[in-house]
Write a protein that binds this DNA or RNA. Structure first.
Lengths: 253, 253
DNA sequence: TGCGGTAGCATTGTATACAAAGTTGACCGG
DNA sequence: CCGGTCAACTTTGTATACAATGCTACCGCA
């Protein structure tokens, strides 16, 4: 993508991730064009790209809407991640280079440090190191396609915010799993590595559910940041509810 | 997508699948606009969609090119399919309804019939039934996301043509695996189902390699259909070689 | 002859104007 | 007062014109 399209893409994506455009928001092309300072053409380009990455959903002749995620969607995402990243870990156990293993250890140390500096863990440092840790595993697996599949799952806004909710004991447990994973990879034991990684992701899912769900409705608890969504005075239409993702799984018999 | 974009998408995609636009072809927007009878705007729309599905690759300021697949890419695709469809089969064993199992049997019968009518197997019938069989498994797994991942893999042009090369004994073996898969699903044995499906896909990979690779250079063996690629008289530039997909996997130590 | 700059061309990228589609809300008839 | 039809408006979809980019080939000069 070139200049205008690229900047529009980043601007819109950033606003979705930051929550400025919450799920369900009707993204109107002309308004986005004003905000981004370009014409509608590159805006449309950016929206198609975002649609391909599941950030938004395009309804023909109606517009594009920020994707919404049901509880089932979220479970689906975590379960698939557990499978894909588990498989990546298995491959990494066969293929990781000593340099990659070294760098994995580095990230673990950074996460350790992030917990010990202040009385509150340094979330940004944890997030960055955690992200890099998983990235190295994925790289070590050696499949660009697999990496893309995983990226598409973890880039979802709802997932991106998951790790925000980690408390200190959960970070600690998570990092112990990281270290065991390194052991498994170093001993070239693919099955072990896969099992640890799958469990690691699914543990993250439980943390996510416990920390966010019981808190009840988690929208606008503090009024939230000023939103750029459709000006209420002009919003004569309710945005369509765009349901994304899985149908309920049929239960046998 | 609406009228013009949609028709452009189908037209271009069809030409890629049919081989009229072979891998590496530089797809020029203006020319496509003529061919499809629409302006460049919906053409660009269609190309972005095709890029998202890995049919083509967009190089900024240079254009879009039909994706090329290396041997490593193809292996990668089959291995990932084996994992994903294997997982789908595992889920299907837990979730498939009696109706779905019934329909699976139907497809097996159709494949059997397709072999027994003439002296040559009826390839179209086999392909349709085979496709539907795998589709049912994927549906039964109950994850829209998983289904999309699998679809993106099997829709690749190179894969779409794989089953074309099946000979009768290979179809027979393939269908025996289908029937065993039904047994596994019916007995709700996820591990069994996963194992059969993984083996089934990997067997397909071997068939693909044996039937197509030793035949040597498989381009234009019979002169091929008339191609609509860039008019040679105007082709002053070689299309860039766009390498897609995986880097070579690093071998340990 | 070899090198560097430059002009021209092919192609993509962006903006704007116009057409089509769909929705709202009011008007009219029952 | 209710229901249906129609017109205006909002928003997306498409076409066309123009700008920017990158390549090629030519020309001048050493």
């Amino acid at each position: 993508m070139s200049k205008a399209s690229q900047s529009a893409y980043e601007a819109i994506r950033g606003r979705i991730l930051s929550g400025e455009f919450p799920a369900g928001t009707h993204l109107k092309e002309e308004r986005l064009a004003e905000v981004c300072g370009v014409s509608r053409t590159p805006i449309r380009d950016a929206l198609r790209t975002l649609a391909a990455e599941d950030y938004v959903r395009v309804v023909p002749n109606h517009g594009t809407f920020v994707s919404e995620f049901s509880d089932d969607d979220i479970e689906d995402i975590f379960v698939l991640r557990s499978m894909l990243e588990g498989y990546a870990a298995r491959m990494a156990a066969q293929r990781a280079t000593p340099e990659q293993i070294f760098e994995l250890r580095e990230q673990c140390k950074k996460i350790d440090t992030s917990m010990k500096v202040g009385d509150e863990p340094d979330r940004d440092a944890f997030l960055a190191a955690n992200r890099r840790f998983h990235e190295i595993i994925t790289e070590a697996a050696g499949s660009e396609r697999l990496a893309q599949m995983i990226a598409r799952l973890i880039e979802q806004p709802i997932i991106a915010r998951t790790a925000q909710s980690y408390k200190e004991p959960q970070i600690e447990r998570s990092n112990r799993q990281h270290m065991e994973l390194i052991d498994a990879i170093e001993s070239e034991d693919g099955s072990w590595a896969e099992a640890i990684m799958s469990g690691h992701i699914l543990a993250g899912y439980q943390t996510f559910k416990q920390n966010l769900d019981p808190a009840g409705d988690r929208s606008e608890e503090d009024g939230g940041p000023a939103r750029l969504e459709t000006d209420p005075s002009k919003a004569r239409r309710q945005p369509l509810r765009v349901v994304s993702g899985s149908k309920p799984a049929p239960r046998r018999k």
